[in-house]
Design a protein around this nucleic acid. Structure first.
Length: 565
RNA sequence: AACCCGGUCGUGUAAUCGGUAACACACCAGGUUUUGGUCCUGGCAUUCCUGGUUCGAGUCCAGGCCGGGUAGCCA
């Protein structure tokens, strides 16, 4: 896979740890990482960054990266998500090869290890209810107290645990707990639950089990089974590390190193699975793959490239404190890549009819246009020109303010790759709205250059009315109107910051005919406007384009400044 | 004093043993240009505070301040 490297790759504290381990021979030079998603939802760009981290760390250190589904909670998990997750990782360009694993495949080993801990007096079956467990746990400032079941005999624990497994007890009536320390200042060490009873069919293990391991009991042990060297997770698991270490030590098994780093946050969006699910369920967006969503499938549909996401992952870096990346950086990474690979094309989003009065009626000629000035190998194409054209409404102003270089009455501009035209007449409807322009063209300027050296200050994109393709174009803006969606008026929640203008549908746009028949996912730059890609809703009868991201727009910035004054 | 982790330009990161605070985005100002795009040039922080060690501290020590995480039979 080619990743554009526009700046030297910076190091990070995790790579430093790996480099040191390789120097000291701690893992005999092995590097094995893993991406451990829970199949209970779709992946988002934060996951993409984690995937990028783990697969790259493995690749750059001659190691391997496993894909392991953390499927220990059958209540929430589904096969549908497993398939979608695999598709997303492949699209990002990573390959786990034969290393596809499931925590559910380890249920037997986990059970045996639990029996081992019971035999050693390090785990016990507890009869406390969920409420009682919470009460016995104590609080952040007060130690917990021991369960009356804590000192059951080893034989009784063994018998009870086996009967839990056999399904003799209803959900929630018993748990297996590690016997550690109810007074520990770390709540995770106050006899954490290892198994709960769940009479629930599992997507992979079916009805074989009715006791399911908790995260802390399953995750580290899965890492151990797979001989992971560096188990990388997010900051909120920092408090779990002592427990991660405790299980491996007490069991006397292979002991990977857990390393935590800060999860990704981005301005003007939300990132938690819970919130993304809420947006979908409450119909604020059309689905997980709504092009406004920061999900991988949403970004894909929007027209993002894997390379842009990789570069963004690299540039946001890896650290141990919370921060929020500017969405402008993501958009920069996107433009940077698209600028190099997206073919140029002309499309008019808000059409304004232009008649070239001195151009012969019924005549058509094909003008040569460059496909990508950044890529000489991309070649050229022919664009049809005729007497009636469309230009962008924004490219004409009857009373142009200072610094507006585009078309105005009496003014001459260039039509890209075509001719210089001069506006001679403005036609308005009864409301005073401009509906049509009449212009004259200079035949000597064919191709867009004036032989007499005359200069124009603007070059406009255009499309021949008769030859253009009619298309729907969907414009997207940030999902939320505030940089930090959590800043709200009293009594409101984050959803009150949802940006009502995040989607604008333009049902009747005109695109040059060369894009006809382009498959969904095909990306273009519509010159002077932005990058667009063919949506999955598109058909030959009705092409649909998504605006992936705008071009940088200096004029919009100036105009905004003028408006303020 | 619950415990754990952390604090470097507006934002995100870098600075190997203690040795001129660097890069990118954003922003501002210019240049080039048949995309007001791209590209090019320039501008923009004495590292949370206070003290200490040292010829020398973003880096080491002490105290403070501020931020995040943790009381699921979720992961």
């Amino acid at each position: 896979m080619s990743i554009t490297e526009s700046e030297p790759k910076r190091t990070n504290f995790i790579q430093d740890i790996i480099a040191e381990d390789n120097r000291s021979g701690k893992w005999d030079g092995r590097v094995v990482t893993r991406f451990p998603p829970e199949p209970n939802g779709y992946l988002h760009i934060g996951h993409a960054k984690h995937i990028y981290l783990n697969f790259n760390l493995a690749r750059e250190n001659n190691g391997t990266c496993h894909l392991r589904f953390d499927d220990t909670n059958p209540v929430k998990e589904e096969q549908e998500y497993i398939d979608a997750i695999k598709e997303d990782i492949r699209w990002l360009g990573f390959d786990w090869g034969k290393h596809e694993y499931y925590a559910s495949d380890y249920f037997g080993q986990l059970y045996e290890w639990a029996v081992q801990l019971i035999k050693e007096g390090k785990a016990y079956v507890d009869d406390l209810s969920p409420d009682e467990i919470r009460e016995y746990r104590g609080t952040l400032t007060k130690p917990g107290k021991e369960s009356p079941c804590r000192n059951r005999s080893m034989e009784e624990n063994l018998d009870l645990f086996e009967r839990m497994k056999k399904g003799e007890f209803p959900d929630g009536t018993k748990t297996l707990r590690a016997k550690i320390d109810m007074a520990s200042p770390n709540l995770n060490m106050r006899d954490p639950v290892m198994y709960r009873i769940l009479h629930e069919s599992h997507p992979r293990s079916g009805d074989k089990w009715c006791i399911y391991a908790m995260y802390d009991w399953a995750h580290g042990q899965s890492d151990a089974i797979e001989k992971i060297t560096h188990s990388i997770c997010t900051l909120e698991f920092e408090n779990h590390r002592p427990l991660y270490d405790w299980f491996c030590e007490e069991l006397g098994i292979y002991h990977p190193q857990q390393i935590e780093y800060a999860r990704l946050n981005i301005t003007y969006t939300v990132m938690s699975k819970r919130r993304l699910l809420q947006l979908v369920q409450e119909g604020l967006v059309s689905g997980w793959d709504d092009p406004r969503m920061p999900t991988i499938c949403g970004l894909r549909r929007r027209g993002y490239t894997p390379e842009a996401i990789h570069n963004f992952s690299q540039r946001t870096g890896f650290n141990k404190f919370n921060s929020t990346a500017d969405i402008a950086l993501l958009e920069f990474c996107l433009r940077e890549h698209l600028n190099k690979v997206a073919p140029r094309v002309m499309g008019v989003l808000r059409p304004l009819k232009v008649v070239i009065d001195n151009y012969p009626e019924g005549q058509m000629e094909e003008l040569e246009a460059i496909n990508n000035p950044e890529d000489a190998g991309a070649g050229t194409r022919k664009v049809p020109f005729s007497r009636v054209l469309y230009i962008e409404r924004d490219d004409f102003m009857e009373e142009p303010p200072k610094k507006f270089f585009r078309l105005a009455p009496g003014r001459e501009v260039r039509l890209r790759y075509a001719y210089y035209i001069t506006c001679t007449e403005v036609i308005k409807d009864k409301n005073g709205e401009v509906v049509e322009l009449h212009c004259t063209y200079d035949p000597a300027t064919r191709g867009g250059d004036s032989p007499d050296g005359r200069k124009v200050k603007a070059t406009l994109h255009w499309v021949s009315a008769e030859h253009a393709l009619e298309a729907e174009v969907r414009l997207y803006d940030h999902l939320f109107s505030k940089e930090n969606p959590d800043i709200v008026e009293v009594g409101q929640d984050w959803k009150s910051n949802f940006n009502p203008d995040s989607l604008e549908v333009l049902p009747k746009c005109y695109i040059e005919p060369s894009v006809k028949g382009a498959a969904p996912g095909t990306r273009y730059q519509f010159e002077r406007l932005g990058y667009f890609c063919v949506d999955t809703d598109s058909s030959n009868e009705k092409p649909v384009f998504n605006r992936t991201v705008t071009l940088k727009d200096t004029w919009a910035k100036i105009a905004k400044g003028q408006k303020k004054k």
